[in-house]
Simulated scan of single mutants.
Amino acid sequence: MTPQAVSPARQRAEAMSDGSSLVRGPLKGYHHETYVLSPPGGSVTVKLREPRSTSLWFDRRCFQSEEELLRGLQGRIDRVPGIVDVEGMGLQTFIEGRTLGEHRWRGRPVPDAVFGQIVDLFRQLTRITAGTLRVQRRCSPEDAPEDGDTDAFLKRLVVFVEEQVYAANRPVFGGLFAELGVRDEALVHLEKNVAGLTPRPFCLLHGDLHRENFVVDPRGGLWTIDWELAMVGDPLYDLATHLYLMRYPADQEARMIREWCEVVEEVRPGSSRAWEHDLPLITGFKRAQSLYTDTVRAALSLREGTGFRWAALPRAAAKLQGAVAAAAGPLGLDAVPGRRQVMAALARWHRETAALPAE
Rank of each mutant, 00 (worst) to 15 (best):
K47E: 11
V336L: 01
A326D: 07
P111L: 01
D251H: 09
L56Q: 14
I77K: 08
F160N: 01
P51N: 07
L176R: 13
R297L: 13
F177E: 02
E163W: 05
F115T: 06
C261W: 05
V36N: 06
V86S: 05
P337Q: 08
F94Y: 15
A328S: 06
A250G: 05
L245Q: 12
V182T: 10
W349K: 04
T224F: 06
R258Y: 02
V46E: 04
N193V: 03
G175W: 14
E68K: 13
R61E: 11
D251P: 04
R303W: 11
A344R: 15
M89Q: 15
R340E: 14
D217W: 13
T132V: 10
A178G: 02
Q341H: 06
A325N: 13
V182L: 10
D147W: 13
G338D: 08
A240R: 09
F115S: 00
G284H: 02
W349N: 03
V46L: 02
R219V: 03
V44K: 15
E352Y: 03
A312R: 12
R106H: 11
F58E: 06
Q321V: 00
K155L: 13
V216W: 05
G29M: 11
T45W: 05
L187S: 03
F94P: 02
A344I: 00
F173D: 05
R348L: 05
Q74N: 04
L243G: 04
E253R: 15
D149T: 04
V336E: 04
M16E: 09
R71S: 12
P109H: 05
M343G: 05
D147V: 15
D59I: 12
Y35I: 01
R98W: 00
T99N: 02
E162R: 15
V44W: 09
T198W: 03
V336H: 04
P39Y: 05
L56K: 15
Q341A: 14
A358D: 10
P337F: 15
L302E: 15
L209V: 12
W57E: 10
P3S: 12
P249N: 11
Q92K: 09
A113H: 08
Y248C: 06
A144N: 12
R52H: 04
E102P: 08
E262I: 14
W105Y: 05
M89N: 12
L176W: 06
R156C: 01
L229P: 02
D120N: 14
L320K: 01
G82R: 14
L37W: 01
Y166V: 02
A323P: 00
C203Y: 01
H277S: 11
E191Y: 11
K286E: 15
Y30L: 13
P39H: 10
T150L: 02
A327P: 10
E266S: 11
L91P: 10
G307V: 08
Q74T: 12
L356M: 09
A230M: 03
A113N: 08
